[in-house]
Amino acid sequence: MQRFIIEMGMGNDQYGMDYTKAAARAIEDAIRHSAIPMFETLGISHDQMQVRVTIGVQDPDAIDCAALVATLPRGHATVTATIGGLNVTNPNTGNTLVIATAAVEAFLPSQA
């Protein structure tokens, strides 16, 4: 498989400390501006594409990776959570803002 695209994104949850919500927003941010006309131009099926998503958050065990896979629109996807991102606590209220980062990579069989 050859990687043909990598997109990065950032998402957050400001009030609920919902790591999966922050991760979903990071994924959406990463793919929101992508347009890949190569599939249509070359007649390649999206079914051939493997999508690998890596999410960075302070509590990777709090991520529902299966729920995130279901949000990806094309290809055969996997989502992996790892230590990363950032938690920021408001000193006045004690509320914690969860910030997630995402790397979305897409792979196809060699076209050579």
Results as ranks from 00 to 15, higher is better:
Val98Thr: 09
Asp47Gly: 13
Gly94Leu: 07
Cys65Ser: 09
Pro37Ile: 06
Val79Leu: 03
Asp13Pro: 12
Gln58Ser: 09
Phe39Arg: 12
Leu72Ser: 06
Phe39Asp: 10
His46Pro: 00
Asp61Glu: 15
Thr20His: 08
Val69Ser: 00
Gly94Asn: 04
Val69His: 03
Arg25Gln: 13
Pro73Met: 02
Ser34Ala: 04
Met49Pro: 02
His76Glu: 15
Leu72Met: 06
Lys21Ala: 14
Thr20Cys: 06
Ala35Ile: 08
Ala22Gln: 09
Ile36Gly: 07
Ser34Val: 11
Glu28Lys: 12
Thr82Cys: 13
Gln14Val: 09
Gly43Ser: 12
Ala102Lys: 03
Gln50Lys: 10
Gly75Pro: 09
Tyr19Gln: 01
Ala103Val: 06
Asn87Cys: 13
Arg32Ile: 00
Ala66Met: 09
Thr71Ile: 03
Pro91Ser: 01
Thr41Ser: 14
Val79Ser: 07
Gln14Asn: 11
Leu86Cys: 10
Gln48Pro: 00
His33Pro: 00
Ile83Trp: 12
Gln58Glu: 15
Glu40Asn: 14
Ala23Thr: 07
Leu42Ala: 14
Gly85His: 11
Ile31Thr: 11
Leu68Pro: 06
Arg25Met: 10
Leu86Trp: 01
Gly75Asp: 02
Thr54Leu: 14
Ala77Val: 07
Gly56Ser: 06
Ala62Thr: 06
Asp18Ala: 03
Ala81Asp: 07
Ile27Cys: 08
Gln48Ser: 14
His76Trp: 02
Met17Thr: 11
Asp18Met: 03
Ser45Pro: 00
Val53Arg: 07
Gly75Ala: 09
Glu28Trp: 12
Ser45Gly: 05
Met49Ser: 10
Gly43Asp: 09
Gln58Thr: 15
Val104Phe: 12
Leu97Ser: 00
Ala23Asp: 08
Ala81Ile: 02
Arg52Lys: 15
Val51Lys: 03
Leu72Asn: 11
Val51Gly: 03
His76Met: 13
Val51Trp: 03
Cys65Leu: 02
Thr96Met: 01
Gly43His: 15
Gly75Tyr: 10
Thr101Met: 07
Ala23Ile: 11
Pro60His: 12
Gly75Glu: 04
Cys65His: 02
Thr78Gly: 05
Asn92Met: 04
Gln50Ala: 13
Ala102Thr: 02
Ile36Cys: 05
Thr41Pro: 04
Asp13Thr: 01
Asp18Lys: 10
Ile99Gln: 02
Lys21Glu: 00
Asp47Tyr: 12
Asn90Met: 03
Arg32Asp: 06
Thr82Ser: 12
